[in-house]
Amino acid sequence: MPLHRIPVTADLIRGALDLETTPDGGLVPHRLPPRARARNTDPQLAAVEVQPSGVRLAFRTRATEVELEVRPTTRVYAAAPPRPPALYDLLVDGTLTAQSAATGGDTLTVDMTTGATELTPGPPGTVRFTGLPARLKDVEIWLPYAQKTELRALRTDAPVEPAAASGRKRWLHHGSSISHGTDAASPTAVWPAVAASLGGVDLLNLGFGGSAMLDPFTARAIRDTPADLITLKVGINIVNADAMRMRAFGPAVHGFLDTIRDGHPDTPILLISPIHCPIHETTPGPGALDLPAFAAGTLRFLATGDPGEAAKGRLTLVTIREALERIVTQRAAEGDKLAYLNGLDLYGPDDKDLPLPDDLHPDTATHRRMGERFAERVWGRDGSLEGF
């Protein structure tokens, strides 16, 4: 049976805050709105906010065959160990049913030692799924979390309509590369996606690799976005970049929260401190690529700061956790509907059976453990946000 070409429209897309129309009619999802992007001056954030972690197509259909025409941008790291193909996850009625990688697309080659990049254009490609059940069903296609993706068209063997509103609570999460998904095997294996599935909530993932920096424009984007629960996982990027001292960090956290509260006066907010990361527990940043390990074919990171300077206000994960707990205690006493979750409760020093492969990012099994622990502590056994 021939497939029907269906344009990808905004009503088919979940998990994005903006959709950029390309000159030939494609759509590129963004996880920050235009005003925030206009305020940004950092190429790292510009690169990662357009990577669609948590973004998915959602529709109802009887189709047994679905193709998604895309133009992905695949990142290749020069001289680094090869990475597996970026996967698209297809869910039928909420259950992961199939996975596939795209053909075609552009290639961005990155030199991790210098930061230099080179873009090689390529043709559009296709992601194909077959053998789906012929009954009427809800289908979601989750896009690769670290691959900029231009959506061009659906091709199916039966009509498609946008998925009905789920009525589920909307969870807005903001964090670092760990929340973005780094080193998870696929988009639904990222820990916030795992937790969202277990809690039956609708995820908006604003995890930005290397870029959870308490930027005011990110706070304004959160302020202006409807949500039933907001979680903020703060600290690791600020340490890796050696971006602040304690004098600036505390007021910056308060300012970030105050801005969000302007639009969410009563929404529960959970402030989450960093998970265990041995290189930065008591050693300040900046973080760096371990060049000898890299030359030997292993991707690993290290901390280059002086532990003795923590007493002078340089930030470590230990001092950041202490500061965040103080801030939550103070604001909660003032009546703010704010709670604290120690990141060590998601992944801590006792989790020695799952070491961080590059000394910074969790693997798929650790993402799963973190998502399960978050769900247990935050959703509660009855899914009622019992922590609030």
Results as ranks from 00 to 15, higher is better:
G26L: 01
Q99I: 09
R35K: 10
D359T: 14
D353Y: 05
T61A: 02
E69H: 11
H173V: 13
G105K: 06
P144G: 09
A293W: 09
H30M: 15
H264Q: 07
V253E: 05
D89M: 05
A80V: 09
T61L: 01
V234R: 00
L57V: 04
R37W: 03
T21K: 00
P284V: 08
L341K: 05
L3Y: 12
G26R: 00
G348N: 08
P124E: 07
P284G: 07
A227P: 00
T298R: 15
R14Y: 01
L324Q: 15
E49R: 03
I327Y: 08
V70A: 03
M1A: 15
T114I: 05
L108F: 03
A195M: 04
A248Y: 08
L204A: 03
R39Y: 06
L108E: 14
R247M: 07
F249G: 02
V76H: 12
G305T: 13
K148I: 12
H276Q: 09
E281R: 08
E150K: 02
V190P: 02
A323H: 13
T316Y: 11
R247P: 01
G287D: 05
R152D: 02
K137L: 10
P144E: 11
T103L: 07
D266N: 12
T329V: 12
V48F: 10
A16P: 02
L229S: 05
T22P: 00
F249R: 04
V318N: 14
V318Q: 12
T109Y: 01
R326D: 14
E325T: 13
D345I: 01
A164C: 03
G167E: 12
P349S: 13
L257Q: 04
D111R: 07
R35W: 13
L289A: 07
P226V: 10
T73M: 14
L68S: 05
G297E: 05
S100F: 04
G287F: 04
K137P: 08
P133G: 10
V8D: 00
L299G: 09
P123V: 12
A219M: 06
D351W: 08
F217R: 07
Q51I: 00
